[in-house]
Amino acid sequence: MEITNFASFLAALFSGRNLALLGAALAVIFSGIGSAKGVGMVAEASAGVLAEDPSKFGRTLLLQVLPGTQGIYGFAVAFLIVLKTGILSTPVELSRFDGALIGLMALPIAVVGYFSAIKQARVAVAGISVVAKRPEESGKCITSAVLVEMYAILALLISALPILLYKV
């Protein structure tokens, strides 16, 4: 499309493909920020434990990586969108409607991923203090933290399924 005036510039900017890619960006950005915050919180807490007893590294590591999965889910959704737009191989022409729809489908994992990563990290931080005192109970702490992840998984499903199934 030739860009001649502001309206055509906007039209080109908000093309179907760009809207879809915007969704991909949001999925990675928000779930990534959430996971980074979450992993950071748990890592800080475990540093305190490790200062006392470095042999607990394995157990604290398990809790540390838990809030990291949301970022991966967001990344997975983003990659599915990128595949849909075909910009890695042969670009697909998406209508503005299709593009907007695909972009919007990234929102569940973007928003839920952000919040659930942080909430999960708080459970994991609490778990770290349990591990400090009673390392044999780490299995239960991990399970409690995994309970929070359920909702990120549901969000991932609702983000990924329509993107996988939507025919453009």
């Binding site: 991966i72 990344f75 997975a76 599915l80 998984i153 991932l156 499903l157």
Partner: peptide, 15 residues
């Protein structure tokens, strides 16, 4: 809750 089987398989395959 078992839909997580699909979700994790999907995430792993995508990565």
């Amino acid at each position: 809750s078992y839909s997580r089987i699909f979700a994790l398989a999907l995430a792993g395959a995508v990565i």
